[in-house]
Design a protein around this nucleic acid. Sequence first.
DNA 1: ATGTATGCAAAACATTTGCACCTGG
DNA 2: CCAGGTGCAAATGTTTTGCATACAT
Lengths: 147, 147
Amino acid sequence: MESQDIKKVGLKVTLPRLRILQLLENSKQRHMSAEDVYKALLDTGKDVGLATVYRVLTQFETAGLVIRHRFEYTLSVFELNEGRHHDHLLCVKCGRIIEFVDEVIEERQRAIAQRYGFKITEHCLYLYGICIKCAETDSQSIGNGSL
Amino acid sequence: MESQDIKKVGLKVTLPRLRILQLLENSKQRHMSAEDVYKALLDTGKDVGLATVYRVLTQFETAGLVIRHRFEYTLSVFELNEGRHHDHLLCVKCGRIIEFVDEVIEERQRAIAQRYGFKITEHCLYLYGICIKCAETDSQSIGNGSL
DNA sequence: ATGTATGCAAAACATTTGCACCTGG
DNA sequence: CCAGGTGCAAATGTTTTGCATACAT
C-alpha cells in the first residue's frame, strides 16, 4: 500500500502524492521526467500542478523513495582539450575538481558496452564527495560525522 | 600562437575568439563556465556578449579545442528506489536505457576516492552510445526508423 | 482548527536564437 | 566588399518560489 510508504517517510498522504507514487509503480516506463509524470496524470484525468509534481518528486527523492537521474544538463564548464581523456572527482563542499584516469574502469566500460551491443560514443563518470580539506574543516565544527 | 589554432579549425580569427582562447590557456582555473569566462573578460575590460561566449565555446567544442563537462543539470528523470545501486547505458538515438552494475568498477571507484582522500557521497556513470537496434537500422540507410 | 499541501502565475537560471550592425580577409 | 561574426534583447526549457486557497489529521 502506497499510503504506508508515504506515511513512513513523514509526509501527509495526499491525492497528488498517492497518484504520483502509484504512477511510478505501475508505469511500464521505468524512468520518467517530471513532465512525463505530469502529462501521464493529466491524460488519466487526474488534475495536478506541474509545480506539485516537482515538489513531490523532490520530497520523494529526499525520503529515498525515488532516485533522481540527471541525463541532460545545463550548467557546463569548459576546459582546454589536451588530448588525454580523464574522469573527475568533485568536492561538493568546496568545488575542488580532481582529474583521474583508471585503465581498469575504461576497460570494464568497453566490456559492458560490448555485452549489451552498444557502440559507446561518450561516457561520463563523475564521483561526487568531500575532499580531505573539507572533511578536516568539517569535523572540528559540526560534531564529527565520520562515515 | 592562439590565432593559428583558431585558423586551423576553420574559424575566422576574431577578437572574442582570441580572447576566450587566451583566457582558457592562461587562467589558473582549469574548468570555467560560460559565465566565468564572460565575467573574467569583462573584469579585464574586454567587452563581449554572453551569447558570443556561448557560441564560441560551442564552436571550440565542436572543433575539439575544448572539452565541455556537464557537472550540473536540468532535465531529471526519476525512478523508484528499489535499494540496489546501478549505473546506466543510454542510447542517444532511441533513448533506450539499460541498467547495469559492475563490481569491478565500483571497487575501482572506492580505490580512487581513497587515493585522493575523498569520501564519496554519490557518483554517476553514464555510458552514452548507440544500441544494437539503432545500429542495425542505421546501416541500411537513413530513412526508415523502426521503434 | 491549523499547519501543510496545492495550484497558479511569475521568477530564476543556463542557454539559444532572431536580427541589425560590424568586421576580418 | 561580403560572408561570417557579434551584441543585444527576447525566447526557450526546466525547475523553483510566492501566495492565496484547499485539505489531511
